[in-house]
């Protein structure tokens, strides 16, 4: 059965979606990814959609769900490489893509994740005397 591979890349997980997602495949990805985050206890997930030509509300919902679920497991999700045509379509459709960060490419996505995790570390270290940052 077809499944989308999830790679562990240092402190992050990387998923590259190269094919049109039909519903079953997307739901499997959601399940696999969440299980993997729990198992590896990574702090960040990168989903590369640069090869994806269509994001409809179903797939947008899956991406949002993944983001929210990962957040519950203390990991941030970054969707990277969205094509201009896809971005324009999503805006017109009115899909805000909540719960995930976005970045131009994998490199920038990793940079973003690192800065998010750094901030969290700082916040945790300062937790006793400064709660206003939260």
């Amino acid at each position: 059965m077809e499944r989308i591979p999830i790679l562990k890349l240092g402190a992050f997980l990387l998923v590259t979606i190269q094919i049109d997602l039909y519903d079953r495949l997307a739901l499997d990805l959601e399940e696999d990814l969440v299980a993997m985050v729990e198992k590896t206890s990574v702090k960040g997930v990168l989903i590369d959609i640069s090869a994806v030509g269509i994001v409809d509300s179903f797939m947008g919902k899956i991406l949002g769900n993944i983001g929210s679920m990962c957040k519950l497991l203390d990991a941030e999700t970054v969707v990277v490489g969205m094509q201009p045509a896809v971005a324009i379509t999503l805006v017109e459709l009115g899909l805000p893509l909540k719960g995930v960060y976005t970045a131009l490419n994998v490199d920038k996505g990793m940079e973003l994740l690192r800065s998010k995790i750094e901030i969290e570390d700082i916040v945790e270290a300062d937790d006793d005397d400064d709660t206003s940052l939260n």
Partner: peptide, 28 residues
């Protein structure tokens, strides 16, 4: 089905944004 819609859109030389919007609409 989406693939077939895309084929036709490419055939009449629709722009990429137009194609993407059409296929997304069809998908919905």
């Amino acid at each position: 089905f989406r693939g077939r819609v895309k084929e036709y859109a490419v055939k009449i030389k629709m722009g990429l944004v137009g194609q993407t919007k059409l296929i997304t609409a069809a998908s919905e």
